[in-house]
């Protein structure tokens, strides 16, 4: 077993445990903290695959900025424990087994189909972040500028929504 495989198994186990705890936790703040664990584990997986820049962005923007926003809103609304509502019989006896079956079947299909893809990987880029910057500001410069407009519209939307009607 190589070091990479060991690291992969550890990080994957952490990610799946975090995702399960997100679903099973009744308190939203616990769900938010579990999601941060998943995101940091995924950042580790990105590092393992040589995507340094994306790993850094994942930790700074996703686990940092976005999740802070979530935690902030949960604290602001003082969101308590999730109310227990009784599921309909349909949801309990058909929905849940079907959802679990869907997940397992989906993972099985991917694992089955992707093993045909076991080609040797293309040689790794020597300076991936430099190449990424070139791609982002040359080939993808138009989508990049469009995201600036998207962010602007999102800021405007947030301000309009958050304004109290007088």
């Amino acid at each position: 077993m190589t070091l990479e495989l060991v690291l992969f198994i550890v990080l994957a186990a952490v990610a799946i445990a975090g995702a399960l705890s997100l679903i099973l936790a009744r308190h939203p703040i616990r769900s938010a903290l579990s999601l941060i664990v998943v995101m940091v584990a995924l950042a580790g997986l990105y590092l393992l695959q040589g995507a340094d820049f994306i790993a850094a962005v994942q930790v700074i923007v996703y686990a940092g900025a976005i999740m802070v926003l979530f935690v902030f809103v949960i604290m602001l609304l003082n969101a308590g424990e999730e109310e227990r509502t009784s599921w309909s019989r349909m949801a309990r006896y058909a929905g849940l087994p079907l959802a679990i079956y869907l997940t397992v079947q989906f993972a099985w299909w991917v694992a089955d189909g992707a093993s045909a893809l076991a080609l040797p990987a293309a040689p790794a880029e020597s300076e991936p972040t430099r190449r990424l910057a070139q791609l982002l500001f040359r080939e993808f410069v138009l989508p990049f500028e469009l995201t600036a407009i998207l962010i602007l519209v999102a800021i405007l939307g947030t301000v309009v929504l958050g304004r109290r009607e007088s």
């Binding site: 994957a12 799946i16 997986l45 299909w109």
Partner: peptide, 8 residues
């Protein structure tokens, strides 16, 4: 792993 996380 990606498929499992998506399903969850």
């Amino acid at each position: 792993l990606s498929a499992i996380l998506f399903g969850l």
